[in-house]
Design a protein around this nucleic acid. Structure first.
Lengths: 102, 102
DNA sequence: TAAACTAGTTTGTGTGGCAAACAGCGTGAC
DNA sequence: GTCACGCTGTTTGCCACACAAACTAGTTTA
């Protein structure tokens, strides 16, 4: 049995599916923790974009951020929450089912 | 060796990555041929959306459309082109690499 | 002939991704 | 001290695009 038609792409959580955020979440899955500059380098995004994408992921509860001062300079670290990991897992399953690599 | 940073998500052809079109392309991969109404049912899209998505895929050269009259009514069929199949293959590889399921 | 149906297409609107401009803070030159 | 510059992010303005509603073109039913 398959999902109702209207729901076929519904499993693809759009928050994760968007390319930039997919990169971010994949990186965070491997790294456990990553700071802003590291993500800046690995994703190739501009500061502005990275900032807004992170804000979205945080407000969705997928990512947790810790802001502190290091060497008297601001420093932000991100890590996936349990919800974020679960959402990513569901996303990958949905994608695989959808594209026939189930 | 990995792709240059700015290009990390670049392998995810946005034309295919968008959820609705990902469904469409996946369906066409399995079906070889599908008509408008069939896609309407399997994707759960509205006529308008399906129409514009198909137009995009056609103008990108990923899908080929044949329009004819059946029982005096218009009837449109779609099938993937070789380019479309190749693009989908690349997309799946890029996605797998990206999400660490390489 | 008029209403209703089928098969799509075009149009209008809102969301959201993107880069550029901006802001806050610290450090060094003068 | 204050002015310029760099570092770390945030806010703003624009543009593309996904979505649904309105529309077109032709057919069947009454």
């Amino acid at each position: 049995m398959t999902a109702p038609p209207s729901d076929i792409a519904g499993g693809l959580d759009p928050l994760i599916h968007e390319s930039s955020r997919l990169v971010i979440v994949s990186v965070l899955t491997e790294c456990q923790v990553a700071d802003f500059n590291f993500l800046l380098g690995t994703t190739g995004l501009t500061r502005g974009n990275l900032s807004t994408h992170m804000a979205r992921l945080v407000s969705a509860g997928y990512v947790e951020e810790t802001k502190e001062f290091v060497d008297r300079k601001p420093h932000t670290e991100y890590r996936l929450t349990a919800a974020g990991r679960a959402a990513f897992k569901r996303y990958r399953q949905a994608w695989a089912r959808l594209t026939g690599r189930a």
